[in-house]
């Protein structure tokens, strides 16, 4: 016999008139290798078919299933119930708009982030289908891949004190994303142009340094390093700008 697990799950569907936020209790018997993916589907299929949550890849690579698991943000799909006490408290991620129960709208938030930070390669070169690719050192490609690995789950945003109190903060994920383009030789933006994007308190200078983002990143991105890197670059860029944003050096 496995343990009896007691789940306490946040319930509220803003699309159902009269519905009110509450915690609901469910009990399941644990078995070997049980993850929160399995447990939540069991609850939906056997106990309560209205329960809303999001899973896609169930392999910890798509970032869909982040939630607050006993008070910490994490990916539900890779969380083994065996690593948790028998009372499991599940809440939706803060900061993001609630869709219902454990489901939040990370898609809209991240799309806005991409657009605000113009997270695409800026280049004046035209693609020439006849030409060979531009050469790059393999270690540069590997260095770009490191921050590119971000799965946009939102755990860093949910962990972040600044993101929790100001809507316009880019979060560690946004700063990491900008850092990815900063080191990409294909991107022709100048430091001054990057400064426009992240050289403010909504960007690299909004971070208050608690580093919960780094602690809670489920794919262990070096967010602390990325923040330091982008800040240093932006501080340097800032020193080269006068107050009107004109280049003086």
């Amino acid at each position: 016999m496995g343990r009896q697990l007691s789940f306490s799950i946040f319930r509220y569907n803003p699309n159902i008139p009269g519905d009110a936020p509450r915690m609901q209790e469910y009990k399941l018997e644990e078995y070997e290798g049980m993850t929160l993916f399995v447990a939540l589907n069991d609850i939906r299929e056997k106990l309560d078919p209205t329960l809303m949550f999001d899973f896609v890849c169930r392999a910890a690579i798509c970032g869909s299933c982040a939630m607050m698991i006993n008070g910490r943000p994490g990916l539900a799909c890779k969380t083994m119930t065996g690593t948790l006490p028998s009372r499991i408290n599940l809440m939706p991620l803060p900061v993001f708009k609630l869709i219902g129960d454990l489901s939040v709208d990370t898609g809209t938030w991240f799309r806005n982030l991409q657009v605000r930070t113009e997270s695409w390669i800026h280049t004046n070169k035209k693609f020439d289908p006849e030409a060979l690719e531009v050469r790059m050192e393999n270690k540069t490609a590997e260095a770009i891949y490191e921050p590119e690995r971000c799965i946009e789950c939102g755990c860093c945003v949910a962990s972040c004190i600044t993101a929790n109190i100001r809507d316009d903060f880019l979060g560690a994920t946004g700063i990491n994303r900008v850092g990815r383009f900063l080191i990409d030789p294909r991107d022709e933006r100048t430091d001054a142009e990057y400064f426009e994007v992240v050289g403010s308190e909504e960007g690299a200078f909004g971070c208050v340094g608690l580093m919960a983002c780094d602690d809670n990143c489920p794919i262990e991105l070096p967010l602390q390093q990325q923040l330091a890197f982008v800040r240093r670059k932006m501080a340097q860029a800032g020193l080269k700008l006068d107050l009107k944003g004109m280049k003086i050096s």
Partner: peptide, 18 residues
């Protein structure tokens, strides 16, 4: 092959020959 190179132009960090 053209698609791969276009993806490179758009920013895919393909691993390279050393």
């Amino acid at each position: 092959p053209i698609m791969i190179r276009q993806l490179d132009y758009w920013g895919v960090p393909w691993n390279r020959v050393t």
